[in-house]
């Protein structure tokens, strides 16, 4: 029995173990779950080490060190020491007395994330939506486009009104917000069907593995 066949059998048995959850929680599921979690945690540790620590930190600092020794030049790769410094601060959590220093790293991460994402969100969630919504409500000789434009403009306008938090939703404002909620729900309905189909493709992938790769019932 080759390694491939053993792998397929293990994969199929574990797949069935996870599927057994559909019946109820059981030892077979618990075993599969524990194995899945344990292996994936170990796998991600290795991935993190080789995809982040080695190329981002170790390789860059090695380059800098080499440049310093060979040419006496201080290049920009030394900037990665800043990341390393914050990483060390995180590890200080293991020392209870000075564990609070790890908050500096957290503050740096949260602060830079908020700052960097501000313009990104403003651009993608704000300006691009506005640009995409500025359309003529009436397009001469093209009823379909006119109806489409009206739906986009009214939907975006009222949807945006729903997300006003500092004004009470009552009167005309509240009416517009309710229309916005209707648009949101119709959108969710359409999205639900669309996403279910993509989940079905995941299921089909597993079924294909069981019936084709394992049982060879599908050629």
């Amino acid at each position: 029995m080759s390694g491939d066949i053993i792998g397929i059998w293990i994969g199929a048995i574990l797949t069935l173990g996870i599927f057994s959850f559909l019946y109820k929680d059981n030892p077979f599921y618990k075993f599969s779950e524990a194995l899945f979690v344990g292996i994936s945690a170990g796998y991600w540790f290795v991935v993190t080490f080789w995809q982040y620590f080695v190329p981002k930190f170790w390789d860059n600092l090695s380059l800098s060190f080499h440049e310093l020794v060979a040419n006496g030049r201080i290049d920009y790769h030394w900037i990665y020491l800043v990341g390393g410094f914050f990483g060390v601060l995180m590890l200080l959590r293991l020392v209870p007395k000075i564990g609070w220093l790890s908050r500096w790293s957290l503050a740096f991460i949260v602060g830079t994330t908020a700052g960097l994402q501000f313009t990104r969100y403003l651009e993608s969630n704000g300006i691009r939506q506005v640009v995409g919504t500025i359309k003529p409500l009436v397009v001469g000789g093209n009823l379909g486009t006119s109806i489409g434009n009206i739906i986009i403009v009214v939907g975006t306008f009222t949807g945006l009104i729903y997300f006003f938090f500092s004004k009470e939703h009552k009167g005309a404002f509240g009416g517009a917000a309710r229309v916005g909620v209707w648009f949101l729900m119709i959108n969710f309905g359409a999205m639900f069907g669309y996403t279910v189909m993509s989940r079905m493709s995941l299921l089909i992938g597993r079924m294909d593995y069981l019936f084709s790769d394992w049982l060879k019932l599908i050629k």
């Binding site: 899945f36 979690v37 994936s40 991600w44 991935v47």
Partner: peptide, 20 residues
């Protein structure tokens, strides 16, 4: 506590946790 970075392993662990 940390479970795992893997999306579906995490989901499997949480599903088990919810049931238990």
């Amino acid at each position: 506590y940390y479970v795992t970075n893997d999306q579906f392993a995490y989901a499997a662990a949480l599903d088990g946790l919810f049931l238990r």
